[in-house]
């Protein structure tokens, strides 16, 4: 079996004040560096937000945004392929629920061959093990370097 850490992916998390133009500034920086965004979400609380993104080159995205003055950090997440049909999300969610793994937050995107669920969980190793056990498929970190 492959090493579990193979499936731990670096998400970039960017602090952003909640005001017009901040997302555009982040997106523009990534465009200039030709960094592709697979998926992203914005979490908002009380005047500020965190932009979370899965990109094809997290290290360079981190460096670029930091140089621009943004506060950036890496967060470990996992990305699970789902069947893009009714019940797809349920399968994954059930596996994690049964295993007692808590989902802190999640977002999804629909890729070329499957839908992908990005998950921040409290026990990443346990989650990876259970998903593989149940025949699920995870995206490897090599896609994101």
């Amino acid at each position: 079996m492959e090493k579990k850490s193979e499936y731990v992916i670096k998400q970039i998390s960017v602090f952003s004040e909640n005001r017009p133009g901040r997302l555009a500034a982040i997106a523009e920086a990534l465009r200039k560096e030709k960094i592709n965004i697979f998926a992203f979400s914005i979490a908002e609380a009380n005047g500020f937000g965190v932009v979370r993104a899965l990109v094809d080159n997290p290290e360079r995205a981190h460096e670029t945004l930091t140089d621009m003055g943004f506060m950036v950090s890496f967060t470990d997440v996992i990305a699970v392929k789902m069947r893009d049909e009714p019940g797809g999300l349920y399968e994954t969610a059930r596996i994690l629920g049964d295993a007692g793994v808590n989902i802190e937050y999640s977002y999804a995107y629909s890729g070329k061959d499957a839908a992908v669920l990005v998950l921040r969980v409290d026990q990443a190793e346990e989650a990876i093990e259970r998903i593989i056990e149940h025949g699920g498929e995870l995206l490897s970190r090599s896609l994101f370097t």
């Binding site: 998400q11 970039i12 998390s13 602090f15 979490a43 609380a45 009380n46 500020f48 937000g49 965190v50 979370r52 506060m71 950036v72 950090s73 890496f74 967060t75 937050y105």
Partner: peptide, 10 residues
């Protein structure tokens, strides 16, 4: 001090 987590910010 930025961890990337919204809950830490809150």
């Amino acid at each position: 001090c930025f961890s990337g987590e919204l809950k830490d910010l809150a």
